[in-house]
Computed example of a mutant assay.
Amino acid sequence: MAERDGIFKGENPLDIARRWLSEAEATEINDPNAIALATVDTDGMPNVRMVLLKEIEDGGFVFYTNYGSAKGQELDATGKAALVMHWKTLRRQIRVRGLVEREDGPQADEYYASRSLQSRLGAWASSQSQELSSRAALMAKVTKITAQKGVNPSRPPFWGGFRIRPLEIEFWADGAFRLHDRFVWRRDAEEKSWQIVRLNP
């Protein structure tokens, strides 16, 4: 096992990830929980976009979206994804690769209910990733949905969470003269133990 200390110290990579995110929350100006989420479509063409991570659990990394969106369809089709968190103020990043499952139960209901009313209505109104004729058409749909759903809309059946259950997590920190520090945690399956190695910059 690679010897680690300082910011890399810990016996659980998810604990280290939570600690780094907590530190970033104190220094990043906007969206310290922003992640670049990578998926692949059925033709093998990669896709990447920024989304907001909502939780780092013991079981993985959780975010929410429209299941009918491009990312939702790609995640359902392949069951695999990767993400990157990068913090300029800390000069660190975390890379994750793993298996994907839906979070479509009470946890998703609770998060949906915590969002602003406008965001909850927007989730109903937006056919995410589908063609849109104009912004006016979208706003008209929001108005219609508002009249239909009122002030306490339930979570749409097409909207919920995804959890990336990691098989690989890499922690990277900037080093002088581009001699960066990199440690990667790998396992062949979720029930297996993590193997930790130091990587060349």
Rank of each mutant, 00 (worst) to 15 (best):
R91L: 14
R19L: 08
Y64T: 09
N30G: 05
Y111N: 05
Q118Y: 07
R155E: 08
R115V: 06
A77W: 08
A17R: 00
S22N: 13
K192S: 14
R115C: 09
M45N: 09
W20Y: 08
F61D: 03
T27R: 15
R187I: 00
A24M: 11
I169Y: 04
R102F: 05
G98P: 03
M45F: 11
E191W: 02
Q128D: 13
R97F: 02
E23F: 03
L167A: 01
P201Y: 07
L14G: 01
A38W: 08
D76A: 15
V197I: 15
S126W: 07
K141N: 11
R19V: 03
Y111K: 03
D109W: 03
K88D: 15
G122E: 03
L99E: 12
P32G: 10
D58W: 02
F8G: 01
H180I: 09
W194H: 07
V51F: 13
Q73A: 10
A123F: 07
G44L: 08
L167Q: 01
V62A: 07
L14T: 03
P13N: 01
N152W: 02
P32H: 10
A137E: 15
F8I: 02
R95S: 08
N30V: 14
F61I: 00
D104L: 03
A82Q: 00
V184H: 05
S133Q: 11
F177K: 04
D188K: 09
L121V: 13
G150N: 09
L53M: 12
A2T: 15
